[in-house]
Design a protein around this nucleic acid. Structure first.
Length: 151
DNA sequence: GCCAACGTTGGC
DNA sequence: GCCAACGTTGGC
């Protein structure tokens, strides 16, 4: 089983919204590297949920993959937020998995704490200029995050 | 195939 | 609101 981290602006899609809706299709990703990670996700992989571009930046919750990748149909919907005319139902370019709410942590693990930690500070999320919205996480990193947030 | 210009992301 | 970092686009 693998571990991942997805970023989302809470104004756009928050952990509370995922909690309410229980399951969400992770649509709208239009970056090849991020897409490739989405396509690697296997059912039941665990996905850390991160809030970016907000007051309390950091890891806020946990989800898991409930459906492996399939075409992101919002790409060929001109009314969607991220239309891409080069992606068609016959030849889809963008894909998405479904993720299911697991839990919201009791507190936010803020980015500055992640950066301070010697182990977590090496995560992609902690590095300057990182704009990738989907990244992989190592088991030891995941375990450490769970441990920090469980106390 | 290079690279400058441009748009977007996202922390601060 | 600022700006650095990065991905994408398009002219050549």
């Amino acid at each position: 089983m693998k571990y991942w981290l997805v970023k989302s602006e809470p104004d756009c899609f928050s952990i509370d919204k995922l909690k309410r809706e229980r399951t969400a299709s992770w649509d709208g990703v239009r970056n090849y590297q991020a897409r490739n990670f989405l396509m690697e996700m296997k059912k039941n992989d665990l996905v850390l949920f991160y809030h970016s571009n907000t007051k309390e930046i950091g890891i806020v919750g946990l989800a898991k993959v409930s459906k492996e990748f399939y075409p992101d149909h919002t790409a060929w919907d001109p009314k969607s937020e991220h239309p891409d005319p080069k992606s068609t139902p016959e030849k889809p370019r963008w894909f998405m998995p479904d993720i299911k709410f697991v839990k919201k942590y009791k507190r936010v693990l803020p980015l500055y704490e992640i950066k301070k930690d010697t182990l977590l500070g090496r995560m992609k999320i902690a590095q300057k200029g990182n704009r990738l919205s989907v990244t992989s996480v190592e088991k030891k990193e995941f375990d450490r995050i769970e441990k920090i947030l469980s106390t």
